[in-house]
Amino acid sequence: MSTEKPLPFIYQFTAGAVAGVSEILTMYPLDVVKTRVQLQTGKGTGADSYNGMLDCFQKIVRNEGFSRLYRGITAPILMEAPKRATKFAANDEWGKFYRSVFGVDKMNQSLSILTGASAGATESFVVVPFELVKIRLQDKASAGKYTGMIDVVSKTIRNEGVLAMYNGLESTLWRHILWNAGYFGCIFQVRELLPEATTKRGKITNDLISGSIGGTVGTIINTPMDVVKSRIQNSPKVAGQVPKYNWAWGACATVMREEGFGALYKGFLPKVLRLGPGGGILLVVFTGVMDFFRSVRAS
């Protein structure tokens, strides 16, 4: 993401890993709330029904305990390092590839969107198994079925087969292609519009603004795919039965038909509150760590 000379892959990978873990430690409870709201298909009543983000927060803490807001965090922590590292490293590598293919020296808006989408597709193959584990641990209905991350993996493979760990790959591809295209495309455009930073503080501010806007736009674009991905991954495969939520666009149609278009944006508020500021945190930490590596190499 830096405009300076790119560092070798291992430095990009490490900086992305540090940025990802920093973001998830800060924002994870919002992800739990988002998933609970997305998986809710009816308007029921009681402790298992949520009227919005704050209601979900309150009911989880009151009925299940504060620690439940961090249930399933092991899988995301293990996922965040390769996921975010792959995101930023793939974005830089795809950027080099597309600049070479199209014969241009510098990135532009169109190439930023294309590069981000390609990085998102690459990232998807890394995250699917971790996402499946996370979703099943976060769902309250699944709380009694699994004792932890390893138990989810072993029971899923034993009951549904090895390939079930990649359940939801297609919807995850769409989710990450759309988010990364919006995220990196917006970062490029916003950086162009902001006054050039002349101090370290100004650079951090610009990164925080552009990353937050990019995260917000990416979230607006990809939330419907995130909703159906959550439902697809939380639906165990049963031999001889076609899951209600199977393929991304078909699942979108099912949700709209049964619950209305607005249901495709369930969990949007906690998601955008996480990935808007979270996108800024990602960019600031990634850029900061890369600058640190440059200073170490220079000395």
Rank of each mutant, 00 (worst) to 15 (best):
N159M: 12
K271T: 14
M225R: 04
E196M: 11
G240I: 11
A164N: 09
C252M: 15
T199Y: 08
K237Q: 13
E170L: 11
L173H: 06
F292G: 10
I209F: 01
Y166D: 03
M225T: 04
M256Y: 09
G278N: 05
G250C: 09
I213W: 07
G182P: 00
A181H: 00
E160R: 09
K200H: 14
P236I: 13
P277I: 07
L163I: 06
V238E: 15
R257L: 03
S295K: 15
G260Y: 10
S154F: 06
L282P: 05
A197S: 15
G250T: 14
F292V: 12
T254H: 08
F293Y: 14
Q241I: 08
G218E: 04
W174P: 00
W179E: 06
S171G: 01
A164Q: 06
T205W: 11
A197L: 03
V190W: 08
Y166T: 03
N246K: 13
N246F: 11
Q189R: 15
S154M: 08
W174I: 03
M225W: 08
P243K: 10
I232F: 04
T216V: 10
L273M: 13
L173W: 02
G182A: 10
R158C: 06
D291W: 03
G267L: 01
F293S: 11
L194P: 01
G185Y: 02
G202D: 04
N167R: 15
S212C: 12
I281K: 00
I209Q: 02
R175F: 14
E192R: 15
G185T: 05
F261H: 11
A263E: 09
S235G: 08
V296H: 08
P270W: 05
E160N: 07
P195Y: 12
L275Q: 12
T156H: 00
V228H: 06
F293H: 15
T254Y: 03
K266M: 09
A164H: 01
G218F: 04
T223M: 15
R294H: 07
E160A: 09
T156A: 01
M290K: 04
N206T: 05
N180K: 09
G250L: 06
T254N: 09
K155A: 06
Q233Y: 05
S171D: 06
I232C: 00
T199S: 15
R201H: 10
D291L: 02
T219R: 06
T199H: 10
N180C: 15
N206P: 09
F286Q: 13
W249K: 10
S212P: 10
W174T: 00
I209H: 03
E196D: 08
S212D: 10
P270F: 03
N206F: 01
F286S: 04
R158T: 13
L169F: 10
T198Q: 13
L269Q: 05
L275Y: 14
K200C: 03
G182S: 01
Q189G: 11
T156G: 01
G262M: 13
E259L: 09
I232K: 01
T205H: 07
M290R: 05
